[in-house]
Amino acid sequence: MSRRQMVRPGGRSARVQASVHTAVRELLSETGRDALTVPLVAQRAGVTPSTIYRRWGDLQELLSDVAVEHLRPDTAPEDHGDLMADLTAWAQQFLDEMASSAGRAYIRDALLGDPDGSNAGQCSAYAAEQIDTILTRASERGEQAPDVETTMDHIVAPLMYRILFRPAGLDAACARRLVIEFLGARGKGGQ
């Protein structure tokens, strides 16, 4: 079980997490990643370094926790009226956010400080929740919607692969093409 899973939500624990996360974000923007240390974060957050080590283990796990929190979507996906439009808009926004230099840094941090895979799972769950919202809306409108996992496999997985390993030529048209090919194949008896 990771340290983050053992922490009780609310109260002092939530205040410590909020102040430490804020300190990390501020220091990253002010001094950069190379100058970041646990004692510097602790001083800014008003906690002891031992508090950070007890809760997060090391700087990389702290950066990972901050990254996962940053990658959490703020709002539900927009409703554009049909599955194709909703999924295309979401995929383009996802790509725009994740492929940015800040997005890539957060992805890297989320994965590097993730010894048990729970952060990767949480990031995946965020995307799955967003897609589930889109697919549920489509079903409620009477549209034939695929399941969440198949959509993740055909939209999110290739986007993440390209973001991480083949970013050249990655743009909104690529995201749109993935959606069109996926939904088009489904309409022709595929998936």
Results as ranks from 00 to 15, higher is better:
S124T: 08
S19P: 10
T133V: 13
R54W: 11
D147P: 01
A145C: 00
R3M: 00
V7I: 13
Q17H: 11
V20G: 03
L170D: 07
Y126D: 05
I131G: 00
E30N: 03
A18F: 02
Q130N: 11
A91S: 13
L71G: 04
S118P: 01
P39F: 09
H154K: 04
E69I: 02
Q130D: 10
I52G: 07
H80E: 15
D147R: 08
L159W: 04
G81N: 03
Q130S: 15
E69W: 13
L112G: 09
E149F: 12
A85W: 00
E97C: 03
D114Y: 08
P9S: 04
T51I: 03
F94S: 01
E140N: 12
Q144H: 08
S29Y: 03
R15K: 10
G32A: 08
R54L: 09
E149Y: 08
A125V: 04
I107M: 13
A125L: 14
Q144P: 04
S13T: 05
P158G: 08
C123G: 12
G184N: 14
Q43R: 14
L164R: 15
E30P: 00
V47K: 06
E140T: 11
R104K: 13
S29E: 07
L28W: 05
I52K: 04
L164P: 00
S139D: 13
I155E: 01
T31E: 14
R8C: 04
V38L: 04
T22P: 00
V148P: 00
E78D: 10
E143D: 12
A145P: 05
Q92P: 04
T136F: 08
V47D: 10
D132I: 02
F182W: 00
P39V: 10
D34R: 09
P158H: 10
A99W: 08
R44N: 01
S50N: 12
